[in-house]
Amino acid sequence: MPVRVQTEDFDLSREVAQLRAAQGPRAAQIGGIATFIGTVRDINDGSGVSSLTLEHYPGMTEKALENIVTQAHGRWDIFDALVIHRVGILHPQDQIVLVVTLGAHRGEAFAACEFIMDYLKTQAPFWKKEATPQGERWVEARASDDTAAAKWGTAASNDANKGGK
């Protein structure tokens, strides 16, 4: 279950090809590959965004992502998953995050991919700072991300005062 945190951009086709190749003979059992790419928008909360700086907690980030992927494996019968998350300075339209899941069928591939993204949003230690015409500002966590994570049925709140872990 490869997990990478990097400043460099990534190439979807190359990453999917490498992940499939890494499965060896069982690659022929894969019938569904789900991919998600998160990208930088040029507007957020009503302000233009000229750039985004992504900070993370080295060491913990990788552990958190590996833990999320492990949980996905526990819930769905997927062959493998890949998570790449970029850090550093990014600009509108840049790619931020890639999730790839390999399943025998589309159902588990889609579900695991969405689960990994929902959990990543509330459980992986990344923080975005936006540059706007009004100056720099840290992005606020969204309640909707908590709602999205909650639908998977375990405590994964981003709100420390709600006892999320």
Binding site: M60, A64, M117, Q123, F126, G164, K165
Partner: peptide, 29 residues
């Protein structure tokens, strides 16, 4: 809060030698 690089609730134990972290809600993805 995190103790030894794992997010924890306030009642989680801290012991000598631990790495503890405090940070705002996360906003990656």
């Amino acid at each position: 809060m995190a103790v030894i690089q794992l997010m924890v609730p306030a009642h989680a134990p801290v012991k000598d030698g631990d790495e503890v972290a405090f940070f705002p809600p996360v906003t990656g993805g």
